[in-house]
Amino acid sequence: MLVGYARVSSVGQSLEVQLDALKDAGCEKVFSEKRTGTTTAGRDELAEALTFVRDGDTLLVTRLDRLARSAADLHTIVNRLSERGVGFRCLQQSGMDTTTSTGKLLLGVLASIAEFEADIRRERQREGIDRAKAAGIYKGRKPSVDAAAVRSLRDQGLGGSEIAKRLGIGRASVYRALQANNAQC
């Protein structure tokens, strides 16, 4: 049986292209989710797909990064499948079929390249943020709590819980705003 797995990283992204490709490839059952791929933790549909597949089945994904973002996670998943007699295929990397020796070799090479690309992307992003901070352009996100309103309500004699309720924020945010104010004095 061909079993598909599709994943996108955020709720705003569409699974449609992956689902269509997996169905066109002949998948009888497809598991899909909208979760980050940086770790396998919390990916319930992936866990269910790995539990569902049986000896002789093949798990299909459209691209390697839909299954795992690190070579270690990818190898762990593929080894788990192999131990159960389950093959693995990747549609967009056509030689990726772990039921063949060439496919196993290609898996290792492509997994290493994918992890390398992710590391390079993170490094470039960090360098860009550091440059923007040094130039005074990047200052982080805007405060979500109006510290002046917190101080004003506190000056009126209100406690943390009441301030939080009136402003629609958490109590911890109230105390952080007050603490930041004290640190500035």
Rank of each mutant, 00 (worst) to 15 (best):
V30R: 10
L106R: 01
V61Y: 03
K133L: 11
R66N: 15
C27S: 11
L153R: 06
L106S: 06
L50S: 09
D97M: 01
L106I: 06
C27K: 13
L50P: 00
G56V: 04
A68K: 04
R151E: 09
V145H: 02
K104T: 13
F52Y: 15
T58W: 00
R121Y: 06
L167D: 01
G128L: 10
L167F: 00
T36E: 03
E16I: 01
D20R: 15
L22A: 10
Y175K: 00
G159F: 09
C185Q: 14
A135L: 15
V86K: 05
L178G: 00
I113P: 13
G87F: 05
R43T: 07
L110C: 07
D20F: 13
I113T: 13
K34S: 04
Q184S: 09
N182M: 13
T40N: 11
G103N: 08
E16G: 12
K29C: 09
V150S: 05
L81E: 03
S101P: 11
L67N: 06
A25E: 03
F88P: 09
C27L: 01
R126Y: 07
L64H: 04
D65V: 01
G12N: 09
I169D: 00
D57F: 00
A172E: 00
T76M: 08
L91K: 01
R89E: 13
L178H: 10
L91Q: 02
R84C: 05
R121D: 08
G95I: 09
H75Y: 00
Q92V: 07
L60H: 04
